[in-house]
Design a protein around this nucleic acid. Structure first.
Lengths: 200, 200
DNA sequence: GTCTATAGCCAGATAGAC
DNA sequence: GTCTATCTGGCTATAGAC
């Protein structure tokens, strides 16, 4: 993150601007200003806005995907897995707060991205997680639940507050500081709640 | 929704386009086409894009807010409240699937809206809900939990799958049909899980 | 590689006939 | 109220000097 080369300066500036305003809402001039560099340079290095955007999106996506594999591919008991995942995932998002809403927003606006990206980059695969849940249900360790619902519960609890941050803060009348505190608290609270809700 | 007047035709077309593509991604021409009407009419009735957008946003916001008051202001025991709310809220979103992500996305992109809208329109106020939770904790009916976390849990579980629909469907490899089925299932599943997780 | 200047296009907005 | 035609500004992208 030293912004050593011009190309890195542009990419980092583009990340900041695109993640905040999205593809449609961002201006090449603004990215140039943010990078403290001439606008023509953006085209020199990335040819056009679309390609620059794709570089940013790919980078965001490739940071997010491995995080999911923490829950999909680790070899651990389900409760341990859930605890480790929620804690590390929220930690990760606290360091990259714009990432989830950026990726989700752009996927909503260009659903065709799903095909081109998700298939190219190697999609995190929840299959083994689903199998593990089924197995632990049969063993009587956890209550009967559709594994897809369980995964959706976990992701919802971790991601939603960040995606809806502005709304949540306005609704509950909380400051940035209190919001961060609540998120810190959630690192253990979420797994406690989820485990309680499925424990046999 | 009969599109009787021209003004209604425009507004309904604008709702569809804005909710799908957002303010920055939408084109006045596209709204005109969607309304099967001349582009100049948009300006005749709404003066400019910003005002048309605000009309759409205000309408969306005023549909969403009363739904929240179902949980904030009803006079019922906490478990009943949670059951009724999750079920009716998901029902409502199934009928207006673009609403939550539209409102949240635009709030993220223009945080200043929060001030102008949320304060003008009368914000749903969670205060009495928080008090009720505190009371039921003291009465020993539910476990100790920060009421804000509980509210965040409920909203997360209801809203996230719709906001991240594209991502969720891609990740879990499910069809539109299966997605809707899962959401139907969630109408009772969520409250069961949440109640189990806080029951004393 | 970096800059200035500008081409070219597209979208929002308006003028004015009917 | 509704339309066609057009203006204007802003934005992406490129040409070309250094």
């Amino acid at each position: 993150m030293q912004d050593s080369s011009t190309e890195e300066k542009i990419l980092n500036a583009a990340i900041r601007v695109f993640q905040k305003k999205g593809m449609a809402g961002s201006r090449m001039q603004e990215i140039a200003d943010e990078a403290k560099i001439n606008k023509a340079m953006l085209h020199y290095y990335f040819r056009n806005k679309q390609r620059l955007f794709e570089a940013v999106f790919a980078q965001a996506f490739s940071k997010l995907a491995p995080q999911l594999n923490l829950i999909f591919n680790a070899e651990e008991a389900i409760f341990v897995k859930i605890k480790k995942f929620t804690s590390s995932y929220i930690d990760f998002i606290l360091k990259n707060p714009y990432l989830p809403s950026f990726v989700i927003q752009e996927l909503n606006n260009n659903p065709e991205f799903v095909t081109s990206f998700v298939s190219n980059q190697g999609r995190p695969n929840p299959k083994s997680f689903f199998e593990q849940v089924e197995k632990e249900i049969k063993m009587g360790k956890i209550q009967k639940i559709n594994p897809k619902q369980l995964l959706m519960n976990i992701l919802s609890q971790c991601l939603f507050p960040f995606i809806a941050e502005v709304m949540v803060k306005a609704l509950m009348q909380i400051s940035d500081k209190e919001f961060t505190q609540l998120m810190e608290e959630r690192k253990t609270l979420i797994s406690d709640q989820i485990i309680r809700s499925i424990k046999a």
